[in-house]
């Protein structure tokens, strides 16, 4: 069931106003639905408190880029409702995609730079290391490595 209402359509100003209880859909879904109409309408979002502190509602003002009539305003309203549901449905099923974007971009850049290994790792000098060699001091007991001898603290 549609949750929003076509409040009014004013042919003179070529403007339809929709309203929606602010508690039903997250603002992000309203944004997504509004965005879907900006190729056909000039969109203005507003919010107003209901009387006696009973929550608030979103107002979505759609001024047609071409001449609208009542049927066209109704169609825009219907499309807004479809988009609202679609956005909210996806939002509900999906968690945020931001991490994925960052991962994709990071991999894109890292893959392209060719700098996947630290330079030290590429040096040939250590090729003939015996497994008993310990150039990084991994086998050194930490007490010895961090002893307070006043000369060495790391």
């Amino acid at each position: 069931m549609a949750q929003h209402t076509l409040e009014r359509f004013d042919a003179d100003s070529n403007t339809a106003v929709l309203s929606l209880d602010a508690g039903i859909y997250p603002l992000d879904a309203v944004y997504g639905a509004a965005y879907a109409l900006i190729d056909r309408a000039y969109v203005l979002l507003d919010k107003e408190a209901r009387a006696e502190g009973k929550g608030s509602r979103f107002l979505i003002q759609l001024r047609g880029k071409i001449k609208l009539d009542q049927a066209a305003a109704q169609a825009l309203s219907g499309e807004f409702g479809n988009e609202l549901l679609s956005q909210a449905l996806r939002r509900k099923v999906v968690k945020q995609n931001g991490g994925l974007i960052e991962e994709i971009v990071t991999q894109a850049i890292a893959g392209a730079t060719g700098a996947s290994l630290p330079q030290d790792f590429l040096d040939d000098d250590d090729d003939d290391l015996d497994f008993l060699d310990d150039p990084l001091g991994i086998a050194v007991p930490w007490e010895e490595k961090f002893k307070k001898d006043g000369k060495k603290n790391a």
Partner: peptide, 18 residues
Amino acid sequence: VGEFSNFALAHTIERKRR
């Protein structure tokens, strides 16, 4: 006015989602 309001909305959405 209309174009400006659409840009302000679009920039808001893009910024908020970023």
